[in-house]
C-alpha cells in the first residue's frame, strides 16, 4: 500500500518508515502538514498515518483541510499520536467524523502494532 506518513520527529519517522517498508509498503514520509498536502496531491495515498502534534498546524486542522478535497474524502486515516485521544478537543466523535479509522497512542504502540493496523485496512482497500 502507498502510505502517507506525517511525523515531525526525525527519529520516529525513520523508524516507522523502516517498519512499514519491511512489510512491503511504500512510505512517503512528510514532517509537516503543508508538505503532506503537496505529497498527497502528487501521489494519492491509500492510507494516511498522522501525528496530531505538528509544527505550525495541528493534526485536526490538517484533517479538516485534507477532507475538504472531495477526492481524498474516502482515504482512511490512522492517527498515531503522542497526545491521547481523550485530550483531543471534540474527542473520538470528532475524529470519527473526520474519517479517522483508528487512534493509536504513540507511547503505547509498538511498531508491529502500527504494521497490523495498516494490514487490517488492506482487505477494505483492495
Amino acid at each position: 500500500m502507498n502510505i502517507l506518513l506525517i511525523e515531525p520527529d526525525r527519529i520516529l519517522g525513520g523508524n516507522y518508515q523502516k517498519a512499514l517498508e519491511q512489510y512491503g509498503h511504500s512510505v512517503n514520509w512528510q514532517s509537516n502538514a503543508q508538505s503532506a498536502i503537496h505529497q498527497a496531491d502528487a501521489e494519492r495515498p491509500d492510507v494516511v498515518v498522522l501525528e496530531l502534534q505538528l509544527p505550525a498546524h495541528n493534526g485536526v486542522e490538517f484533517l479538516y483541510e485534507f477532507r475538504s478535497y472531495t477526492e481524498w474524502q474516502d482515504i482512511p486515516v490512522i492517527v498515531l499520536s503522542i497526545v491521547s485521544e481523550e485530550s483531543v478537543t471534540g474527542g473520538a466523535k470528532l475524529l470519527e467524523q473526520l474519517g479517522v479509522v483508528r487512534f493509536l497512542y504513540k507511547p503505547q504502540t509498538k511498531l508491529h502494532q502500527l504494521v497490523s493496523a495498516v494490514k487490517y485496512l488492506e482487505p477494505a482497500l483492495s
Binding site: 527519529i11 520516529l12 503522542i82
Partner: peptide, 25 residues
Amino acid sequence: LKLPLLHISQHIELAKMGKETRYEH
C-alpha cells in the same frame, strides 16, 4: 521523557526485526 523512551523502545524493536541498531542514538 516520553519521547526519548519511545526512541529507545523502537530501536530495540527494530533490532529484533533484524534492522541495524543505532547504539549511539
